[in-house]
Each structure stands twice: as structure tokens, then as C-alpha cells.
Amino acid sequence: MTDPAPPSDRDLGRAAALAGLRDGGLVVLGYIPFGLASGAAMAQTDVSPAVSIASGPVVFAGAAQLVAVQLLGSGAGVALVVLTVLVVNARHLLYSASLAPHLAGWTRGQRLAGAFLLADPTYALAIARFERPGGGGGRGEQLGYYFGASITCYLGWSALVAGGVLLGGLIPDWVPLELAVPLTFLLLLLPLVKDRAGLTAAVVGGLVALAAHPLPFGLGLLVGAAAGLVAGGLVLARQPEEPDADPAPTGEAADA
């Protein structure tokens, strides 16, 4: 408080990393029931515990891991499993496209490392921060927050799945915790809804995903997201374009 010097880039980066660690840790807390339950469900299949546990750090996408292990357990071939995972995880294409303009100042190595950790909660935390006015700070702050949050989620999720596989039903059935994950995503969604188009995308995406929920392999999520994008896009297309609203940089910003 008495220090008149402005904080250095390093201090800002460290503070951002701590903020990421805190937010990521909170998300991991919300994931405790789903992570343990997913691991416990995998343990019920014929797939070896080692492979089930490895699916956490290798795939790092809950629904896809669960579907993959259950398909393997029912005797499905490698090609079917991999194709199904590709479909279930196709939403990551959208995350990648959506984050690309924000990460334009990162080196290629940083972007490729970041991509490995780009799961649902990573995207939700990162986009909420980077879409703030000021874009979540300079490159050092962006990197600090992104990797602080995503590595926390990565380690936490992998540990929860492993715990679930090894220890089975750690949480008794009568403790209701199913709402923790959807509630977390609702709270991560709220800061992203800034106008009518965003609200339309969220509401239509949610309602269509709900209607399409009976589809196998979590495909309802993909159908809902696509419908939300189209509906929000239609609202946006009817609004006049703001000339300076696009955050995407036009030139080659930096190295790599």
C-alpha cells in the first residue's frame, strides 16, 4: 500500500496466475461429484483401471471419456470409439475459433500448449476474463490466468477421475450434488451475455439441448449449441454492425 512504484509485468502475471488458480480450484470443487461418479462408472466396465485413469490426463473431457470407456467396455472397435469422441468433442472447434483472436499475441508454442488444456471449464473461465474491457490484461497476465486456471482444472479433474476409479462410490447416493456442475456453468455463462443476441444464443442453445437430451453420446449438447449459434446469429444479423466492436486484430501482432 505504501509502495508508489507501479506493479511490474511479472507481479501482474503472478497475480493473474493466482486468480486463475483460485477460479480453477473453485471449478474443481464443483466437479467433485461428477468426476468421482465418472470414475466410478468407468470402474464398472471391463476396461482396465489403468486405461480409465489415463483417460483423464490424455483426453481431459469428461463426457467423451465416459462414452469412450463405456463403448470399449461393451466391445466396440477402436475406430467407432475414436469417431464418437471426435463428434462429442467437436464443440472444441468452436472454443478454438472463439479464443483465437484473444490469443493472437501468444507465441505458437504457447497457443499449442494452451490448446491441450482447452476443456469446457478452461474455455468458460478464459473467455469470461478475456472478453472484459482490456482483454484481461497484457500477454503475461493472460498467460498467467489461462495456465493457472487450466492446469488446476487439469490436475484436479485427473485426480477426481482416478479417485472415482479406485475408490468407487466415495460420496453416498443420498447426498444430492448433481446441480453443482450445471450451476457452475450458469454462473460462468452470465458475464458472457451482454446483449439480445447473446441472450438468444444462450436461451435457444439451452432449450434445444434440453429437447435433444435423449440423443445418444451427449449429441444433444452439440445440437443445442448449433441451434443457439444460429438463433443468436439471426438476431445479430438484424442489428447494424458496429465498426469498432470486433476485437480481432487485423495485422500480424507479434512473433512466431
Partner: peptide
């Protein structure tokens, strides 16, 4: 920018 609301809405609401 609509990707976040659409995907997170589709995860959260059901």
C-alpha cells in the same frame, strides 16, 4: 462471441 453463450447455455440448462 456467441459461441460462449450458446455452448454454455446448452451445457447448463438441461
Amino acid at each position: 462471441p456467441l459461441v460462449g453463450p450458446a455452448v454454455l447455455g446448452a451445457i447448463a440448462l438441461p
